[in-house]
Design a protein around this nucleic acid. Structure first.
Lengths: 417, 417
DNA sequence: CTTAGTTTGGGCGCCGTCCCAACAAACTCG
DNA sequence: CGAGTTTGTTGGGACGGCGCCCAAACTAAG
């Protein structure tokens, strides 16, 4: 979240200064709410005249509007300037084994559209899956158009490894995709006026949990539990990808050297004791309906919650036991990263309230820093939408860095939602 | 390493633009070597005229000098502009249980002065220890003054937890220091013209390994092994401290749930199997001289190396066994962070060449990403000087962000080293 | 109601920075 | 020795932010 995000070598000219100050003003309005030009100037350390010109330009680009009158104790009242998110939206998309999905929200973070299409990606050709996704994005675009809003970017979350410059999914074992030029196919199918970016699903889910501008949510560790366990790391408000994009493979930390064999071929991987399978096997016999893979995950988790709420001993023991292992692994990560928040996503979000005591117990024991290093445990409220949500947010991030990327709106005659 | 490091809300004015471009030019000279104004302009995407004014100002501040003539195939030859590190130095200092130390190097990274004073910090009052450190810093300052150079900053590494805004060591169990205002005492004793900053020892050691500007050394994981094991993380060229400054406590990851009891009270902490004590106990009987704590660490490690070089079976087995545990823990960290380089510091640097096969073996097995995620293993060449080195570098970091912090030199009549 | 004091927001001139274009200087090549 | 090439400097021009000023709008007191 630096003012100029350029790590590049490009020179800075006068326009960049303008860009940076526009972004500064816009972020301040986003993070600290509507204010008069004068108080905005005071907060930013600018003169009122400068802020006036900045606000004028942001208004032309449809990013802010004049709101209500605000009055101090004495003096002329000012007109509050507030973020106007309506005209610029970000689209997030996801390609998963079981479904493709899109989600759009506007600059204020308000949900605009959400779509999901169930399919079996493994039995389809990658081109067909992408064609389905293109249809979904088109439908979402139509909803935006009906509102008079424009898409500013599309960020696609995929499970696997990608090349961030080309948007090629190089290595997606879950999907069975290798060297699929996801971004190029989408660009060809959509001919969009906005950039199309490919990113890792877990990264986007992590980014979704870190609220931009909120200083208490800049160091976040997200655990995403399904059959496997993965996650993402946000440090200093920046997504941590690692040197080759492999960061966040928590599920294969070896926590029990002579433990259970993992799908990856090794023994004692964390996900063998903290993944969904471990929970189900501890909670029920093989003949139990919750062990039936034909049932949807949501239904099986709901049943586990129902039993736990009724006080079923075996279910509670399983949740506590798996929670303990989750806590042991989380403690390792907290000793390493000392996040402000540990967010439990995926299936943990559904049943996490029954695991939380065990997790917090293990964090208290296993983290060296006093009070578990100040890390609080939270359940994700985004559920399985985390990745698309993060994608939509990521698509909009550049607006707050460089508001001049949003075109000036030609007509500004009384628009209404 | 962003162009503008401001995460603050302060507005940007024309001077900031200048600062950023001066920094850009200076970093480019540092990272890509001396070049003519014209090629510098081409590399930075600026005009030659702008670069001329930038170089003129950097010259006035004594940061660059005109070097040799450079010639392309045809055309007028240019004068190479090169970084002139001589006049600005950074001082790093360290307060350890066994010693206090200082080190100064100049802007080019050339060592200027190094001092070390052995003492037993636990048997002394903190004020006395700091008084000894002040003496050392004064001597270092004198060496700088004799060269005509000025100190630009002092960064003090301490083992423990500090408040980075006040420079108070809040929690230093190794030293037995609690709420000691280290920065304030040093400022009072030195009345320096430069800023005094306190930071964590392991953080500074990690920062020392990450070469600024080298893209292959921006994601680094440093393991620092002594009796305990700690380390630091550099991600995207930025030091990772965590939300409360507790990041990097690798030693207390629990890697063997029912393992050996640790000094921290728990069982199976990584440092119980990967620390120096584990190596010594596996390598020799209690009566063996290398188990004698009266001998210096360096001597004992040298003896281990000697035995290993001679092919002593027990020593080799110990190095391999401990190396295996180092690798198991490192694999956990690499799955999490996917660094480009794993740097082995502390005692690992001394005997690491005998551990490396085991470590690399375990990384190959334990890291999910193919080829261990591209992580290469290196031995630190800084040894026990890593922290002071990193402190000196950290003291100079601001020069490359904002060169205007270095004052204009009044007289520029033919200075010589 | 009038007057003084306060706060807002916009206009104007100044300064600083960068870009562009033109030019002199210095060198190679034919 | 002149044509072509590259370098570094110089003089406008554009643009952005600051400081200062002023009109507008409101409160508080007489």
């Amino acid at each position: 979240m630096s003012t100029f995000q350029t790590t590049t070598d490009h020179s800075l000219e006068n326009l960049d200064l303008r860009r940076a100050n526009l972004g500064l003003a816009l972020r301040s309005l986003r993070d600290h709410g509507p204010r008069s030009r004068a108080s905005l100037a005071a907060d930013l350390g600018m003169t009122r005249s400068t802020v006036s010109t900045l606000v004028a330009e942001l208004t032309e680009r449809g990013l802010v509007t004049a709101g209500q009158q605000v009055q101090r104790s004495v003096g002329r009242p000012g007109t509050a300037i507030e973020l106007d998110g309506r005209w610029v939206c970000g689209i997030g998309a996801e390609i998963n084994v079981n479904h493709v999905a899109t989600l759009a929200h506007d600059l204020s973070g308000d949900l605009v559209d959400e779509r999901k299409l169930a399919l079996d990606a493994r039995s389809l050709d990658s081109a067909d899956v992408l064609a389905h996704l293109i249809d979904l994005v088109r439908e979402t675009e139509a909803v935006l158009a009906a509102r008079g809003a424009a898409a500013f970017g599309l960020t696609v979350g995929v499970a696997g490894l990608h090349d961030s410059t080309t948007g090629v999914l190089t290595h997606g074992p879950n999907l069975g995709w290798y060297d699929v030029p996801v971004a190029a196919v989408l660009r060809a199918g959509l001919t969009p006026a906005y950039p199309v970016v490919v990113d890792n699903e877990a990264n986007l889910a992590a980014a979704a949990e870190a609220t931009p501008g909120d200083p208490s949510r800049q160091d976040i560790l997200v655990l995403y539990g399904e059959i496997g366990v993965g996650g993402g790391i946000v440090a200093d408000g920046r997504l941590l990808r690692g040197s080759h994009g492999y960061a966040g493979e928590f599920g294969h930390m070896i926590v029990e050297p002579r433990g259970r064999r993992c799908g990856c071929g090794r023994q004692g991987c964390w996900e063998t004791v903290s993944g969904l399978r471990a929970l189900l096997e501890r909670a029920a016999d093989p003949t139990d309906p919750i062990r039936n893979p034909r049932l949807g995950i949501d239904e099986r988790l709901a049943e586990i919650n129902r039993r736990a709420d009724l006080g079923d001993a075996r279910t509670l023991e399983a949740l506590d036991g798996v929670g303990e292992w989750v806590g042991i692994g989380a403690a390792i990560l907290c000793n390493t990263l000392n996040p402000a928040v540990l967010v439990l996503g995926g299936y943990y979000a559904a049943v996490g309230h029954h695991m939380r005591p065990a997790i917090e117990r293990e964090l208290g024991v296993g983290v060296l820093a006093p009070g578990a290093g100040g890390t609080r445990v939270e359940l994700s409220t985004l559920g399985f939408r985390a990745a698309v949500c993060g994608g939509a947010t990521a698509s909009l991030a550049q607006v707050f860095v460089d508001p001049t990327r949003v075109p000036r709106r030609p007509a500004l005659s009384g628009e209404s939602a």
